[in-house]
Design a protein around this nucleic acid. Sequence first.
RNA 1: GGAGAGGUGGCCGAGUGGCUAAAGGCGGUAGUCUUGAAAACUACUGAGGGUUAACGCCCUCCGGGGGUUCGAAUCCCUCCCUCUCCGCCA
Length: 451
Amino acid sequence: MQPSVWAFQTFALCSTLSGSNTQTGYATMLDLKFMQQYPEQVQEALDKRKTGLQMSDFLRLDQQRKEIIGEVEDLRRRRNQASDKVAELKKQGADAQNQITELSLVSQKIKDLDGNKRSIEEQLQDFRLSIPNIPHPDVPLGDTDEDNREIKHWGEQPNFSFTPKAHWELGPELKGLDFERGAKITGSRFTLYWGWAAKLERALLNFMLDIQTRDHHYLEVLPPFIVNQDSMQGTGQLPKFKEDLFKIEDWNYYLIPTAEVPVTNIHRDEILREENLPLAYTAFTPCFRSEAGSYGKDTKGLIRQHQFNKVELVRFSHPDNSYQELELLLSHAETILQLLGLPYRVVTLCTGDLGFSAAKTYDIEVWLPGQQAYREISSCSNFEDFQARRANIRFQAAESRHKEFVHTLNGSGLAVGRTLVALMENCQEADGSILLPEILSPYMDGRERIS
RNA sequence: GGAGAGGUGGCCGAGUGGCUAAAGGCGGUAGUCUUGAAAACUACUGAGGGUUAACGCCCUCCGGGGGUUCGAAUCCCUCCCUCUCCGCCA
């Protein structure tokens, strides 16, 4: 039977074949043997995701690597044997000088070959780190967000007897959002919140954390907002997407673009217990994104900021049920919008819109009357074992006695700034005030109307 | 910032140049015993890679990198991390 692209996943689950190699530092994203065995399938996947990578390059390098390994191991074996002999001769008190001089030459040769080997392995590693995840078969083919597939709607778009305003009008009018001073303090895409708006942001993130911990049983964590290079590589931001990140000058540290990075990396290089799966963590963090390449997009308002707050949901799942877990995660994010009464739709991202590390992603898009458009407010993804391989996150499988990679998932639950925008625009009244949903009242000291 | 101590397999912990993939223990798996379970006893139990039809054979890995040496877990340099004491500080 011809293996399909889908075989990547199942193949990767074979416990005897899986396993990344932390000792040599070769975090992997696709199983090496699969790449060697089914290069056509890999090439097909690479083409589908428009990477421009050629498997022929990989195979050539891999061949070189094997040749050099054969050579170097042969020398090593000879050296080891001769070394044993030296030890023996010395023990007998015999002279071993001849062997010793000869061996020093062999050692030098080994050193040279090792250098070549390393350079080839680095190239192979670069290649492999540039390969995006393989889309799940459910993922629609497509090039742009136009090709995303809408799978559901919830709620009704509000009918206004007046022309609804955008939040970038309402915010300043109600003295909550100060775009000018944000720009003065830092620059464009930074906003100062005053009074009710600052409080509403805090109310929302507390509300979200409470729902996710209390009703959906996530464990709340508060991770570092700055991470190292290994963490960025573990979740797939590096090495390919450096330009999207803020880097700390003179340090190998980065500001996190999402809580996914520190939270997923909690268990990097760890072996989890099967009976503890799934693990479910939620975290509030600010997120920092350079938004390189989005010049001119969403320049007004809070939609696209260099710094924004988010409550994130992260799950470490058993490979057998990660797609059920994805549905669950999606429902947990949806709950927040439902409780707030905000209309939304859910789309499945097409192959062209899918993120680098994801196998399948649902975007939740909230209705924004000010723009007469649905805008992304949460993105829920199953990464399968892609991140787990890179970050070396495994579990001890009781049955097989072998270690397998977990599946990682995450999703926003939700982006706080955009939720605030959605509330302002959907809950605005004819007099220019905003009537907040009752459920937030305890978080707002009972205040329901912003005017 | 100054002074010390340490990083070894799933976990704990021996190991100061060749006899060490690494004692011992815990955990795990299988078996003996038992009506069953526990206890006890016995055996097995790291990973990656190369080669092979397969059995197997071989190479590498003791925080990362570099060096000394015929040969390094063990000696030297360097970086990272953890811990203790002093100073400073939210």
